[in-house]
Each structure stands twice: as C-alpha cells, then as structure tokens.
Design a binder for these strands. Structure first.
Length: 507
RNA sequence: GGCGACGUAGCCAAGAGGCAAGGCAGGGGUCUGCAAAACCCCGAUCCCCGGUUCGAAUCCGGGCGUCGCCUCCA
C-alpha cells in the first residue's frame, strides 16, 4: 500500500512520490541555539525521526539535513548577557541537543549545517534575487520584494491583503511593502557581522534554510518539515526566496507538526514564555521509550498537552511492550525448537502477519502513530498470552518446544515494528549495577560460590540459579533477601513454575 | 477582524457511511511459599440542534466550547 501524507501546501492528503525515487531529500527546521531544547522540540524531532524511519523501512534512501540557527537576535543577546562568544554558546547547546536527541533515540541527520557556515551561499542567493528584481537594498539592508512573487502566501493560504490586515508589528517605513522581509541586515554596533556587497551585516532568519538546503540537497526537496508555527512567515518566505531564485518548485511535500502545550497553561510551550519542560528534565523522570510513546500517542497534526499522568501512563505502556519481548526471550533461552508447531503457535504466526500489515497501513496513512502503537500492543498481548500459558504450564498453551519458532518470529516482528517508531524495548543493565553485583556476591553467604566474571546479565542469571537452589530447599529467608537486595539495585525478580526471571526495573 | 484546526469512556487516543481500535487508571478473578509480572472478565445515548441517507462518530448546515497562525517561535 502506498504512503499518503498531508501536504500543508495543498491542505490535502497526497500520495507520496519523491522526485527521484528511491532518493528522498528531507530537510527539517532545526533549533535556534539561544538555549536548551524542550519537550515540544522533542515532539517535532521524534515525529520526523519516525517519518525517516518509516521511509527507510519502506525502501527509500533518505538524505536528512537539519540546521542549527546560530546567529539571531536572541543568541546575540544571550552571548552579550553572559559575556561569552557566539561560538562558545553555540557549541554548548549543539552538544547538549545532540546528546538529548541520542538519548531519545532520534537518528542523527546526515548533516547539521550551521547558519554562520553558509554565509557565502546566502550572499550568492541574495545577489541572484537582486539581479532578478526580487529584492532591493536600503541603507545596507536587503529586503525581499513580496509583490514580485505572484505565489507569495501560497503555503499559509493567505493573500498579501489578509496578511497585512492582521499585522501586529509596526512597519519599517523604508520598506516598499509592509510584508517585505529582510534577507540581509546591516550590522549594528557591537554585533557580529560578515562582509557583503552591501556592507558588513548578517543574514535574515529565513535565508539560511534556503541556502543550506540547497547546498546539501539541491534546489528541489521532497520533504521539508517543522513545527506549525514556522509555516508563516519562515517557510512562506523560504519558498518565495528559493523559487524566485531557482525558478523551480522548492519542496514537494511540506509537513508540519502541531504543538505541545503544558498542562495548566493556556498557551503552547515556548522558550520565550518560559512555560517549558526541558528534555533533560523529562529524561530524568521518564525512560526514553516512555517519552517517545507519549509523544507519538497523538497524531502529529493534533495539538497535545504534556501531562505528567499521561507521560507516566505511556511509560508504563512501554514496559508492557518490553515485557512481551523479555517473556519471549526467556522462553527462547530455555527451550530448544522441536521443528513442529502447536495450534497456539500457528495462531500467533497468523496474528503476527496481520499485525505487521496493519501496522504498516497505519503509518502509510499519514503517519498514524497512535494506530500503529495500538497494533504493537495487540501483538505484545498475543506474545504475553502464549508465554504466560507456557510459563504456567497450561495444557492449552501447548508444548514450549512447539512454540519456539512462532515466538521467535513474533519477537523479531515486535522488535522490528517498535524500531520503526524508534522504541528500543530494552533496558540495559546499568554499569552501576554491575559493580554492585560484585559487592553482593561478597556479602551474601549463599552467593559465595557464584562466579562474578563476565557480563552483568550472565552474573544475574547465575545469581538466580543460586537463589533457585535456596528456594528448592525452602530457604525462603535467603531467597527473599537476595530478591530484595537486587530490588535495591533496580533489578526485579519474578518467579515462575519453570524458574525465575530478572528484569531491570522500570524507572 | 482574517485564515485554520479540534471536541470520542475518569484520563490519553485511533477511527476512509455499515455492529465504536489501543493504552493508562479503577474493580473482580487466575497463577503463586510470599512478592512481582503476565493472563482472563468488566466500561461510551462519539459536545448540542437540525438535515441528507435504508443506515452518520464519520457527509451538509447552524450553535456552543477549546486551541493555533496573522513577521521571537519546533
């Protein structure tokens, strides 16, 4: 089934067909480096991460570019306030942004151009626009002449008259038309500046994305994305500049995500209002899978609210998915395949195939991530049901060795589909636990003979074996003590008829 | 003022005219040395009023409410 996406430009769901398949050129508007990123930014980048993962899963080769805005009024103001250089400030927030995106399992773009590194390209475009009569110079500033572009307003769906009617800002009288926007700003005293044919100055905001997308992806993009707040003026102006400069269509599909609001706040989350949850704070409270699951639990074009109970709920839902993978793995670790398949195993196979197809259709339908998540839960429940029956040795579950192949396939599918949403479904054993385990082996007499070498997962398996021996001799005091010591380390122990299982505890 | 979204169970949320997905929370049960996890069972006059249709959460009209954008912004 083909992919359909809602194109802001046409306001319709359209079949996705890139200019030159299987290549997809995707440019996503990046952050302004005047401060750290908040969970509203995370919503946008997690969403576009899913766009990319789904395109790649569908066989496209995606070239993904995301910019950093490192020159702009607020950055200059902050640098001056803190007595730091722009470079110093930019370096700090770029590093932090990438670290936080890595933590959220957002795939890295292929290029992260910075505005200040693309000044020559910008100057070249401005010169071209001047030569074609689409721009004019006033006192060292260069403005785009909106009346020279008959298409101006096509993205935001408004005419020049409509835009002017709602204007909230005082108009610079030197401009020919109130909606004309700056391509290049003459330097003010004390501000960083670059030489140009119009004197020292710095670029306007919009020109950077035109220049950087062209430099890395060529004049025509397949996908250009960002938050819906940048539709106007930013993306509107980008189209005007780019198309007037190249004479070609700039972007085939414009994708915009709706905003995230703070619980109890009437307005959307934005750094200038201060009503934000920093990504770093969210990561301290919730696991990455939980945060992603929450952010993807609403369709990307629906506004959503950051509510702690909802994020906590998504965090628990992530555990439920992870439990299915872990239950499958426990079974697979302990059971050799028989080469046969029981009735329940055949049913699981069929369900797995159905879920795979439904999951794909959901994402193909304009990235319906809430629908896709629902299908993931359906498969997880099927795996859990079978694994539960087998762990309890229920006759209707069939023989474990007859379920192995179907369970392995279901687990692989669950992993694969979750991976398209960027969910890891795994909780690695933290290094701190590995160290604490060695101490536990020394302190606990019942664990004296346990080998503490090797990866912590193996050590935990051996600890559970020793604990199992204690249970078998009905030494529950020891067994419970080991369990509670592990719990203190963040490892929970679950007992089943066929043996015990450990899990790194949720958050 | 102009342009545009949205309103589905306590909460989050999908839904391409034909018996209303999924999750979280809650209640009951199964399993179990205890615990935990998982599994099973339980929940909706789809904001209101009209209309079209054999049939509407879905289409049309009108209300009410919430939100976004109209040069800081993901």
């Amino acid at each position: 089934m083909p992919l359909y996406v809602t194109n802001t430009l046409t306001r319709r769901k359209e079949r996705f067909e890139p200019w030159e398949p299987p290549e997809v050129r995707m440019y996503v508007c990046g952050v302004n480096l005047h401060g750290p990123a908040h969970v509203g930014h995370a919503r946008s980048y997690v969403f576009f991460d899913v766009v990319r993962r789904h395109l790649e899963w569908s066989g496209y080769r995606v070239r993904h570019v995301q910019n950093f805005t490192d020159i702009e009024d607020k950055i200059i103001a902050r640098a001056q306030r803190e007595g730091r250089t722009l470079e110093d400030l930019a370096r700090e927030y770029i590093e932090r942004f990438l670290r936080e995106m890595d933590a959220l399992n957002v795939l890295r773009a292929h290029h992260y151009p910075r505005a200040t590194e693309a000044i020559p390209e910008m100057v070249r475009i401005v010169e071209g626009l001047l030569a074609k009569g689409h721009a004019y110079v006033v006192d060292g500033d260069v403005y785009f002449r909106v009346t020279s572009d008959p298409d101006y307003g096509k993205l935001s769906g408004r005419s020049l008259e409509e835009l002017q009617a709602g204007a909230r800002v005082e108009v610079d009288p030197r401009k020919e038309h109130p909606m004309d926007f700056a391509l290049w700003k003459a330097a003010k005293p004390g501000e960083p500046s670059w030489p140009s044919p119009w004197g020292p100055g710095r670029p306007g905001w919009h020109i950077e994305c035109s220049a950087m997308s062209m430099a890395y992806l060529g004049p025509r993009l397949d996908v250009h994305g960002g938050g819906e707040d940048v539709i106007f003026p930013h993306h509107e102006n980008e189209i005007a500049q780019s198309e007037c400069f190249t004479g070609q269509p700039f972007v085939k599909y414009w994708l915009h995500n709706a905003h995230l609001r703070m619980e109890g706040q009437a307005e959307r989350m934005t750094r200038s209002l201060g009503n934000v949850v920093w990504i770093a704070d969210a990561l301290a409270r919730y696991r990455p899978d939980g945060i992603r699951l929450f952010l993807l639990s609403s369709h990307y074009r629906t506004p959503m609210t950051w509510r702690d109970d909802a994020v906590a709920g998504a965090d628990r839902a992530a555990s439920h998915l992870r439990a299915a993978v872990e239950a499958a793995e426990t079974l697979l670790r302990r059971t050799a395949p028989s080469g046969r398949a029981s009735g329940p195993a055949l049913q699981l196979r069929e369900k797995t195939a159905r879920v795979r197809a439904a999951f794909r259709s959901a994402l193909d339908d304009d990235f319906d991530t809430p629908g896709a998540i629902a299908h993931l839960h359906t498969l997880a429940a099927e795996v859990n049901r079978l694994a539960d029956g087998i762990a309890k040795q229920l006759p209707e579950a069939g023989r474990p060795e007859d379920a192995v192949e179907a369970v392995a396939e279901a687990r692989d599918t669950l992993r694969e589909l979750a991976g398209v949403l960027g969910l890891r479904l795994a909780e690695p054993v933290p290094a701190s636990v590995a160290q604490a385990l060695r101490r536990l082996l020394e302190e606990e007499t019942a664990l004296r003979d346990v080998d503490g070498q090797g990866p912590p997962e193996a050590v935990l398996d051996r600890i559970l074996e020793a604990r199992q021996r204690a249970r078998e001799r009905r030494d529950f005091a020891t067994a419970d003590r080991i369990r509670s010591r592990l719990a203190e380390l963040g490892v929970s122990v679950e007992d089943y008829p066929g043996g015990s299982r450990w899990r790194v505890r949720d958050s």
